Amino acid sequence: MSCARLCLAAVEAARTNLTPQEGPPELSLYEAAFLAGGPQRVTELTLVSMHRRRTLLLAHTGWATVVDPEGEDDLERSVISAIGPAGQARIAAVRATAAATDAVRALAERLVAAGLAVPETARSHVASAVRGVQGATVLILVLATAAVLTLPQEQGAGSGLVLAWFALPLMLTGGSLVVARIEVHPSARWASPDGQRLLSSFSPDDSLTAVALSGVWAIDDPDLRAALSHSRTHSRTAHRSD
């Protein structure tokens, strides 16, 4: 049942994005960043772009400082607003706040309306279905272990036959997870098939495009990479403590 639910969720996500296109749209760098990595990637690109223009200072210790309070677009202004009136804040907090602003949501809605991004409901259904298959896999292993351990001593030789009954469902759930892991492109969480085709036409021939497509690990400046990597580690640690 969990595997069937995963298949249905995947089909639903694919059908949701069958939006007719009048012509091949041209993606902006921010749109490419969203399709490749979602709201967090858009915020990362905005932070890097502002740092390169010296309107924002990103320290390797994980702090962001406003140099020029005038943003060039809504996304930059949302980052400045996320930093706050003090003009300085932790990059992890800025990243989380800016990723949830109206500017990023409007960008996502435009891409969904164009059939290039996966709607939030479809993403949540697929993620929930994957968790269901993972839970079923664990349940099968637990039941198989319990069945062998509770087998009467004189029937211990029949444990192989008992385990054989669990082999088929385990192969089904485990195989589904393996196929999903191998076949699903990393950007598939955010980009529809049409969006992924457009992303494939992007070439990381400059540093900002590389960040949009691959994230902070593509940054060539070690200090800047350390600043954003430090904020990622801090954010994960805070999330686990919560």
Rank of each mutant, 00 (worst) to 15 (best):
V130I: 14
D74W: 05
V104D: 13
T97I: 02
L149H: 14
R131V: 09
L149W: 15
I182V: 08
G158V: 09
A98C: 06
R90A: 07
A146I: 05
A98K: 10
L161K: 13
L177D: 00
V67D: 06
R95A: 07
L170K: 02
G156C: 00
L57E: 12
V79K: 14
V48K: 08
R52Y: 02
S49F: 10
E76K: 01
V142F: 11
I83V: 14
E76D: 02
R181Q: 14
V178G: 00
G115N: 00
V79N: 09
A64W: 13
A164I: 00
T43Y: 01
G135V: 05
V162D: 00
L58K: 13
A167D: 00
L168P: 00
G175L: 08
P169I: 05
G87K: 12
I140Y: 14
L47S: 04
G156N: 07
S78L: 04
L75K: 03
G158S: 14
H51R: 11
L163M: 03
A147L: 11
S81Y: 12
L58A: 12
G175E: 06
L139M: 11
T101C: 14
T101A: 15
L139F: 09
S81P: 00
G87E: 08
F166P: 00
A117K: 15
A117Q: 11
E154Q: 14
V178S: 01
V79M: 09
G71A: 08
A164Q: 07
V66A: 02
L116H: 02
Q153E: 08
A180P: 00
T137P: 00
A129W: 02
L177H: 04
G84E: 07
I80S: 03
L45P: 03
I91R: 12
V112T: 05
T150H: 04
I91E: 06
R52W: 05
R52Q: 14
Q153M: 10
T55E: 13
T55F: 12
G71H: 09
R131F: 05
P85A: 13
A89M: 15
G160F: 01
L149G: 05
G84I: 09
V94N: 06
A129F: 01
L168V: 08
A64M: 10
R54C: 03
L116Q: 03
I80R: 15
A86V: 06
D68Q: 13
D102A: 13
L56A: 01
A93S: 11
L139D: 07
A93C: 04
I140K: 00
A82H: 01
T97M: 06
Q155Y: 12
V178K: 04
L116S: 03
F166L: 07
M171Q: 07
A136F: 04
E76R: 03
M50F: 06
V126R: 15
G84L: 09
A103S: 12
L161G: 10
L56Y: 03
R105H: 10
P169V: 06
I182C: 01
T65K: 15
P85D: 12
L45R: 07
S176E: 08
V94Y: 04
A106G: 03
V142K: 11
V48A: 15
L139K: 03
A180I: 01
Q134M: 02
